[in-house]
Amino acid sequence: MRILPLALAALMVPATAFAQCGGSFSGFVKSLKQEALTAGYDRATVNGFFKGASQDPKVLRADRAQGVFQKPFIEFSRHLISQNRINRGRAMAEKYDSTFRRIETTYGINRGVLLAFWAFETDYGSFQGDFNTRNALITLAHDCRRPELFRPQIFAALELYKRGNFDPAHTTGAWAGEIGMVQMLPQDILDNGVDADGDGHVSLKTSAPDALMSGGKMLSHLGWQAGQPWLQEVTIPAGLDLSKSGTDSKLSVKEWQRMGLRAKDGSLAAGSLKASLLLPQGHKGPAFLAYPNFDVYFEWNQSFTYVLTAAYFANRLEGASIYTAGKPDQGLVGAQMKQLQQKLQRLGHDVGKIDGILGAKTRAAVQSEQQRLGLPADAWPTPALLNRL
């Protein structure tokens, strides 16, 4: 989630002047309208945008039911990646070759990277979500779980409406307010929207060139480095110090080479480039080196499993072979993962919310306990670790 542009932010009154979340829904909408008027929007625009706004209980149910992210990497990636999706991706690359050439020249984003997002977010535009975007954003901002993330997006959508690029009654998208073929939030559209087809509008729902160019511009602004890799499958030697694995540990490629890491195919990147060793299902499963561009993925989505799968799929679309799955140790599921998080919390670790999802904080806590107990410190929780704790 990005902040408002300076020009718009300057018009915004201090957040403390208005209710940030909760209370009656109608009262909350009334407060938003008043804030918009105070920020300088005319009454007709404000009334037009908020007319018919309603709370959407389906949005709240979707927000609380993200069970797909509980799946481990191998299962998750096999669920999302099929030969049909690869074939369609390559067909789309050919169909929109001129657009991808513009993106590669202008922003330095490989086509495989955008194709992977396009595939995962909307299946190449075939299903973009049917939630009313305005209502979804207001519903999530009114809900007091993460108002700081969604409240600014309401005013970004209002600005898009003022510019003629948003229909509050009919614009639809994902439950979390993302719009279009590559699912961008209103603020991201304001910051990075590109009219690539030259029709005078930024139409991410109906124009693939607009959506792809806008996605490329956003990745560039998030820090993507042209000409650099993002992810590469590697083999690891026996006896490797596994405590050096994980997204928080970054060593030079030359250091990884000295420790015995080798590229599965081809050669590793330049020796001075920093990289992290990722073992999504422990040292007996797939292994990858994640280069600096991989960090940009987390600006698009916070789920480790999702971004790793998206980065791997980008490689596949550009010709990489299928990863070696290996034979990972059995992991934890559902109630077991929550039990693990509770035990780690009692031991003094900050694992965030007890949600049964193996997120970054839980992985770090697992790795710490593995080191303490003399187990392979690969951050992959197993029933054996759970029993030891």
Results as ranks from 00 to 15, higher is better:
Leu347Val: 04
Asp329Asn: 15
Ser24Glu: 12
Gln183Val: 13
Gly22Trp: 05
Ala119Gly: 15
Asn87Met: 11
Gly359Ile: 08
Lys51Glu: 13
Tyr291His: 06
Ala44Trp: 03
Leu317Ser: 04
Leu279His: 05
Asp188Val: 11
Gly266Lys: 01
Ala365Leu: 12
Ala290Ile: 06
Ala169Arg: 14
Thr309Glu: 04
Thr305Cys: 03
Gly282Ile: 05
Gly319Ser: 11
Arg316Asp: 12
Ala119Arg: 03
Leu375Cys: 05
Leu277Trp: 04
Gly260Asp: 07
Tyr323Ala: 08
Cys144Leu: 07
Ile357Met: 15
Ser207Val: 05
His201Asn: 08
Thr38Ile: 04
Ala269Glu: 11
Gly334Ala: 15
Val59Gly: 00
Gly40Trp: 02
Pro72Gln: 01
Ser54Gly: 01
Leu137Asp: 01
Leu212Ser: 01
Lys51Trp: 02
Pro14Phe: 07
Leu204Asp: 06
Phe131Trp: 09
Glu255Gln: 15
Gly129Ser: 10
Met92Gly: 00
Arg43Ser: 12
Lys205Thr: 15
Phe100Val: 02
Gly215Phe: 05
Val29Ala: 03
Gln128Thr: 13
Thr171Ser: 13
Ser207Thr: 07
Ala141Gln: 06
Phe69Pro: 07
Gly177Ser: 10
Ala263Met: 11
Pro376Trp: 08
Ala19Thr: 12
Met337Leu: 15
Met213Ala: 15
Pro383Trp: 08
Gly285Asn: 05
Ala93Cys: 03
His79Ala: 13
Gly334Thr: 09
Phe50Gly: 00
Arg316Met: 13
Phe100Glu: 00
Gln55Pro: 00
Arg102Pro: 00
Ser98His: 10
Phe117Asn: 03
Ser24Gln: 05
Lys284Trp: 08
Asp265Cys: 06
Ala65Leu: 10
Pro186Leu: 02
Ser252His: 02
Pro14Trp: 03
Trp230Ile: 01
Gly352Gln: 09
Asp295Thr: 14
Gln336Leu: 11
Phe150Lys: 05
Asp123His: 15
Leu185Ser: 06
Asn315Ser: 08
Gly48Glu: 05
Pro383Asn: 07
Asp378Gln: 10
Val68Glu: 12
Glu233Met: 01
Gly216Ile: 06
Thr362Tyr: 07
Lys51Phe: 04
Arg388Thr: 09
Asn192Val: 02
Ala360Gly: 11
Thr99Phe: 04
Phe288Glu: 03
Tyr41Lys: 00
Pro5Glu: 14
Val307Glu: 09
